[in-house]
Design a protein around this nucleic acid. Sequence first.
DNA 1: CGTGTAAGGAATTCTGACACG
DNA 2: CGTGTAAGGAATTCTGACACG
Lengths: 151, 151
Amino acid sequence: MNSDFTQRVRTIMKAHDFLLGIGDIASATKVSQRQLRYWEKKGYIHPAKSSEERRHRKYSYHTLMKVAMIQSYVDSGYTLSVAVEKASQHEEMSNALKHLIGDRLRDFNILEDGYELDFGMVEGVSQDKSLIAIMRKDRPTEFVLRNNSND
Amino acid sequence: MNSDFTQRVRTIMKAHDFLLGIGDIASATKVSQRQLRYWEKKGYIHPAKSSEERRHRKYSYHTLMKVAMIQSYVDSGYTLSVAVEKASQHEEMSNALKHLIGDRLRDFNILEDGYELDFGMVEGVSQDKSLIAIMRKDRPTEFVLRNNSND
DNA sequence: CGTGTAAGGAATTCTGACACG
DNA sequence: CGTGTAAGGAATTCTGACACG
């Protein structure tokens, strides 16, 4: 739990405030620029506020996820308006994921064949234990509870 | 653990394959376009392969993180070459984060004032229990072990 | 070494329109 | 409703160079 590490996590979080151009959103999601502009006109998505002054639209990470989600529902056979409605139910998911990392990631170790992520204590479990995600090459990610230093 | 949910997680994962333009990387990381081109010339970063045919460079999420990390070390006072070296140690971190979600996220629930993320079983703990991240408004994220349905 | 800037050409995005259904 | 396309103008990115240190 060193402060240098904390600084790096903060850097990663901050970098998530990037903005994408309409062409980049289009190729990432397979939703055409024409569709994106139409969806905006209908109020389903919005370019980032910080790009309002500019001529070229810029979209947030959050909007990228929303577009991907809407298209996913459209692909499943829903009409656009219903897809938008359904997507909004999952809209918070990507934000939740972002917060989880920033809130709880305590340390990071590189192994020979993978990595370990330390997420700290778990409620109702001895405070001497930390939750560790172990990710090794060609193996599914495992969670374990590990003693904090004495072992 | 419904399959509709699995589909949404897959959609989110897939959307992470987006590519950013050089201007977007520059404003997200505060590293100038001139620097980005120079870093590329030195072999520190690389545009996405899929953009090799085009005239305009496109960068992956992974490269965005690497650039942010390098700049973070430069801001800390390291020379560029040392910053690159140090950044490469953390380079896998953002990938690890991405895999963790795709690998382990089992379900997602929306609460009145937050969300719950289900990450499934923990090694060495009863298989009847699931690891849940609980994120409520204005409260730190908590991990708990919860019984799988009987309770 | 590492980065800024001016210069002219090439690729991208913009809006409003016409189209189909 | 929802999306494609052609059209001309505006903003972005490209490279190679000159500069400073």
